[in-house]
Design a protein around this nucleic acid. Structure first.
Lengths: 165, 165
DNA sequence: ATCAAAAATTTCGACGTTGAAATTTCTGGG
DNA sequence: CCCAGAAATTTCAACGTCGAAATTTTTGAT
């Protein structure tokens, strides 16, 4: 069965015979798949009253350790957003009462962000459904294929040095 | 070798033992890989004086057929951007002299966009280098692995109905 | 103790996208 | 032939991000 990227590769073969466009077979598919999965996640979370970035922030704090607390810098790099964007996001989460913010004792340069009880309850409520939804989005592959895909993606990511949060 | 997503899965295993977070092993990796590849493409194109979206538009026109001409609607869906964003992009490409825009003869609702000779020369000059760069970004996988990865991604994309441009 | 450099965060302006409303043109049924 | 609805594009306001500059605090060398 053909996907949209096959159609594109066919167009290249016609427009520029002799050109080896095969790298687009991977790069293009990763890009399209990423957007489709994002949309699927967004639709699920919208039903729970959360934007994807909100769930990301709450889930990052939840998995960070018992205290559910991180400083702005670590949150910024974990979420792969600029420091400025992180400030903006935390402003809004504080306003919703899902996190709180306080200077770190002993180092007033740092701001510590924690889940509030309400934030913890919300993310915990949504987490299982979110994973079920992701499983559904991947249902086109069986378990072996999913594992193989994860393995290939890992190998590529490691080669691109994506080894830290 | 561990990648960043393995670290995240390890955090989940500690924070919520018993939770099966494995879908994130695929979804998270696709998302991170997509961003890394985008960055690699962006850096290459910046050296040629092009933004990724500019190259996308020019390449889409180039591979569309002999005439290098498409209407706004088809360009919009090809590039997966809203119609409004497309108008904005074309304004700027016209200003750079890389495309031209004219009403379709016989159907004045439609606007036809074509590569100018200058746009054609530019995208043709950059195309081979762009593919070489993408190949470099994928160099962590050998040919068989790359083909296997493309196949798994295709299967997943087909299951998500990503079969048209 | 002091000061320059580094570190963490916030502020701010520029930019691009989205989604909805508006505009123009076409199509088909009556 | 006319008109309502559909189709293609443009306009516009709201929104979020980035990057750079500014701010505050800490660190280390002298």
């Amino acid at each position: 069965m053909e996907d949209a990227v096959d159609v594109i590769l066919g167009q290249w073969a016609r427009a520029r015979p002799g050109l080896d466009a095969s790298p687009m077979g991977v790069v293009g598919r990763v890009s399209r798949l990423s957007r489709l999965l994002e949309r699927g996640v967004k639709e699920f979370l919208a039903g729970r009253g959360l934007e994807p970035w909100e769930f990301d922030m709450l889930a990052t704090l939840l998995r960070s350790g018992e205290s559910h607390t991180m400083c702005m810098k670590d949150l910024s790099s974990s979420a792969m957003v600029s420091p400025g964007a992180l400030t903006n996001r935390m402003d809004r989460l504080v306003e919703r009462g899902l996190v709180d913010r306080r200077p770190a004792p002993g180092n007033r340069r740092m701001i510590l962000v924690s889940l509030t009880p309400e934030g913890l309850r919300l993310v915990d409520d949504v987490l299982q459904g979110h994973l079920d939804n992701e499983r559904d989005l991947l249902a086109g592959l069986d378990d072996d294929e999913r594992a193989a895909l994860a393995g290939l993606l890992r190998k590529l990511l490691v080669s691109l040095r994506d080894t830290d949060l």
